[in-house]
Structure formats: C-alpha cells, structure tokens
C-alpha cells in the first residue's frame, strides 16, 4: 500500500483495521511494514482517501 503523506492526518484508522498489524502510525509518521499483503482494507477505512 502507498500512503500519500501529504493527505494523511495520522488518525490511525488504517492501523486499527489492518488484519496484519502492518501499519504503524506515530505522532507525525505512518509506516507500512513488510507484513502488508495489499489487502486494501485500509484504503476503505481512510477518511481522507489518502491510501492507494
């Protein structure tokens, strides 16, 4: 998954729904780890439409 950081609010919706715990959201950063399977659950969860 690709997070478009310019649109990201670091709210954590993506991390909360990820079935693989592959998204880590800190105060000012978001990282997608190798555990990501490209299942796209986070794409739907994002209120900003910031994940492709």
């Amino acid at each position: 998954m690709m997070v478009e950081k310019d649109s990201c609010m670091y709210c954590g919706c993506c991390a909360s729904v990820c079935p693989f715990n592959a998204v880590i959201v800190t105060d000012y950063d978001v990282q997608v780890t190798d555990a990501c399977t490209d299942c796209k659950t986070c794409v739907k969860a994002c209120p900003m439409g910031a994940i492709q």
Partner: peptide
Amino acid sequence: MSRVAKDLGIDSTTNLRHLES
C-alpha cells in the same frame, strides 16, 4: 489503534464493518 492489547494476545483489530470513518 491499540497495539498494547494485541501484543498481550487480545485481538483488538477493528473489523472494517465496525469502523465509523
């Protein structure tokens, strides 16, 4: 996005069906 509970073995992942975005 709790990780603490998950790391102690309780699955607190939010099902997308139960998330208000």
